[in-house]
Simulated assay, not measured.
Amino acid sequence: MFDFNDIALFVQVVRCGSFSEAGRRLGIPPNTVSRRIRELEDQIGARLMQRSTRKLTLTDAGREFHERCATSIDDLQQASQDLARGRKVPSGLLRVASTANFLDFYTPEMVAGFLQTYPEIRFEFLLEDAVADLIADRIDVAFRGGSGDGSGYIAHRLPIAPIGLFASPDYLNRHGSPQTLAELARHHCLTVPRQSGHAMWRLQGLDDVEEQVEIAGPFAASTTRALHSAAIAGLGIALLPGTITVADITAGRLVPVLPQYKRRDQSMCVVYPSHRQVSPAAKAFVASVMRKFENEALLLDG
């Protein structure tokens, strides 16, 4: 009969990368950790780890065993915490993945307000424009563009404001405001880097018919956050998600340009790992973010 505590210990060792770090976190001497892992290997009849003075490396058997056990151990630990606390109050560590500019939209002040309501929740944000691996990175909930489709994921579409054109009042005072989409070709437009130096913007007008214009400009960047900051600084006209521009419009830092043109085919989803039950903490946080999305969409539509 396997000791599930030893299996949980094995998962912790893999995540920590060493016996000593796993022992430190669990309050167990490293030699005890090493002995229990050896006993687990004896029970299984296979070597799970290659040991050296510098690091631990999983064997093929160890990698397969970890992949099959880790999520079950997480679920058992979560279930134990739920039962121990009666689990009406959302609590625990919540790992959230999203784009680099997520906290420009859902601000640290909003996080602080959320934590006042749910003081037993702790956050870890993984913010980068590259798509995170929910399983490998142990993500509880992710916000990402597109449909969110993927093996092992559950996705729900969020109500978001469309992408539109924005510039600073300073830029428009210096260069004028374009009156047609074609005039954008003569303006400084802020884009992602391209080898050709030119980019094509495709936008829908009020009749939902797509039009396109070739644009260029003196500044390009690979993240939405950088383009957003460049637009505020007066470097040019940027194509930005409406959800991150509401506060700037209110404060006078940005002005809509050609507001009749939008990119309406964009979408955002909230994504969960399908193997894991959605925790009360994740549900509460997603509900808060969705209220923010809905409010911003209503403001921009108004």
Rank of each mutant, 00 (worst) to 15 (best):
L239N: 07
S267C: 06
D60C: 08
E210Q: 13
G252L: 05
L76P: 00
V209A: 12
A216T: 13
L239T: 03
K55M: 07
F19C: 08
A226G: 10
A167K: 09
V213I: 04
H175R: 14
A8K: 09
Q116V: 14
A79V: 03
D6K: 14
T53D: 15
V96Y: 04
R51K: 15
A284V: 00
D133V: 01
G146L: 06
F166Y: 09
M200D: 01
A233W: 02
T99D: 07
L254M: 02
G17M: 06
E21V: 10
T223V: 08
I154S: 05
P30Y: 11
K283V: 10
Q12F: 08
F219C: 02
H275S: 10
L56T: 07
R291G: 12
S222Q: 15
T191A: 15
P29V: 14
P259F: 01
F293T: 07
R24M: 14
T191K: 14
T57E: 12
P119M: 09
D74E: 10
R253C: 01
A221M: 08
K283I: 06
A70I: 00
P259M: 03
A185L: 00
L58T: 05
P30K: 15
I237A: 14
G150K: 07
S151A: 08
L26S: 14
R263V: 06
V286C: 05
G197E: 01
I121T: 02
